[in-house]
Amino acid sequence: MLNIKNLHAAVEGNAILKGINLNVKAGEVHAIMGPNGSGKSSLASVLAGREAYEVTDGSVEFEGKDLLDMSPEVRAREGLFLAFQYPVEIPGVSNINFLKTAVNEIRAYHGQPPMQAKAFLDMLKSKQKLMEFDANLMNRSLNEGFSGGEKKRNDIFQMAMLEPKLAIMDETDSGLDIDALRVVSAGVNKLRSKDNAFIIITHYQRLLEYIVPDFVHVLYNGRIVKSGTKELALELEEKGYDWLKEDIRLEEPVQ
């Protein structure tokens, strides 16, 4: 589904990603962990198409197409979804109107007619139920005055509505209390299928107790320095990141 090869990226001339290789297949959940400043969120931003990031080398294929060649909206329409670390508040745009517009823009891209009002509302209701999302939030302005937890839940609810092939969750667990974490994780688990895939970016192992990954990768200094299964996450939790940094330092040639 997603094939990242030797990806290099920079912000304002500073190299942030320094050769990422990652292959994600349908049905898989990949966790990306790493210390602060290692490039985790940058990877999410580059994949979603944030303008500030300049790709300096490498390639990313998504379902056989060149992802880097697409605008952010086309990436989304092709089935890529970014759950934001900080979902944006947009006063004056109602949640429901926003979702309807998004659904219909994606449908138009695939040559489908706009969804009928009734069908849309039915879908909305069933997903609300599935995701345990408070219906009262639907008519409010997008994320305006939402608590941190409500914003993250809204993002996951949007994911349920848009049914992406690949969801990238950028530190979705940050700022969540344990109850919100449980609800958000349960939502993600309900959406997991053999046809879609998830990249879960997180700082802590805690989230991975709820959303069990197939693979765990450690990002450090713009590169994936270690990959393994879910046990790797436990090891990191126990030992921290310092032992990895030591290992890497030993491996790196003396300058």
Partner: peptide, 24 residues
């Protein structure tokens, strides 16, 4: 960017934001 990341095109996204500003 948030709107675009949900599949909404540039022109539509701008129009939504301008209207939101006005309808407040």
């Amino acid at each position: 960017f948030y709107l675009k990341a949900r599949g909404i095109g540039d022109a539509m996204a701008r129009s939504m934001l301008v209207k939101a500003f006005a309808f407040d």
